[in-house]
Computed example of a mutant assay.
Amino acid sequence: MDDPNQIDVPPSFIALYTTPSGQRLLQPIAFVRERYELCEDLAQLLTQRAAAIQFGSHRSPAEVLGQMGATLAAGESPVQPAEAAWVISRLAELLDWPAPAPASGA
């Protein structure tokens, strides 16, 4: 039977849910797809807010992304830490800002 879901999850997100060798998913694809939809929607939603913060505060894009990343990594966030990092990378991509530096110690 064909998969009726037409959402194409990018490899960068799938990598969050694969074994270190990248050979096997750690969660069912339906779960990964659901998490991807949440994270992509969140990144899209945050674009206007991030641009407004950067414009209004005259902070650098790196500072804005860092602040938003810290907020997303907090305990009450709807996303896991690895997902939060992906959301911030996607947000930078959507805004055409430089990619954030990887978090140290992660």
Rank of each mutant, 00 (worst) to 15 (best):
M1I: 13
M1V: 13
D2Q: 13
D3E: 09
D3A: 07
P4M: 02
P4F: 02
N5E: 15
Q6D: 15
Q6N: 15
D8G: 11
D8C: 14
V9M: 04
V9H: 03
P10C: 04
P10I: 03
P11G: 12
P11S: 12
S12P: 07
S12T: 10
I14H: 10
A15R: 15
A15L: 08
L16V: 04
L16K: 07
L16W: 06
T18V: 13
T18Y: 10
T18G: 13
T19P: 10
P20V: 08
S21F: 09
S21N: 10
S21E: 10
G22A: 07
G22T: 03
Q23C: 14
Q23S: 15
Q23R: 15
Q23T: 13
Q23E: 15
Q23F: 14
L26D: 06
P28T: 00
P28C: 01
I29Y: 14
A30Q: 09
A30I: 07
V32M: 02
R33W: 06
R33G: 06
E34P: 10
E34Y: 05
R35I: 01
R35D: 00
R35E: 03
R35W: 02
E37N: 13
L38T: 03
C39F: 05
C39I: 03
E40K: 01
E40P: 05
D41Q: 13
L42P: 02
Q44P: 09
Q44T: 04
L45K: 13
L45V: 10
T47Y: 06
R49L: 10
R49P: 10
R49T: 09
A51G: 09
A51L: 08
A52E: 10
Q54E: 15
F55S: 11
F55L: 14
G56S: 14
S57T: 12
S57R: 11
H58E: 14
H58K: 12
R59K: 09
S60R: 02
P61M: 02
P61I: 00
A62W: 07
A62V: 08
E63T: 10
V64R: 00
G66D: 01
Q67Y: 14
Q67D: 11
M68T: 04
A70F: 12
T71H: 12
T71P: 07
L72Y: 00
L72N: 01
A73Q: 11
A73G: 08
A73K: 13
A74Y: 05
G75A: 15
E76K: 12
E76P: 15
S77D: 02
S77V: 00
V79K: 02
V79N: 00
Q80T: 10
P81Q: 02
P81D: 04
E83K: 08
E83C: 08
A84M: 03
A85G: 07
W86M: 06
W86K: 01
W86R: 06
W86H: 05
W86E: 01
S89M: 12
S89R: 15
A92S: 08
E93R: 14
E93M: 12
L94F: 13
L95R: 06
D96A: 13
A99V: 06
A99P: 12
P100N: 03
A101W: 07
G105I: 07
A106S: 15
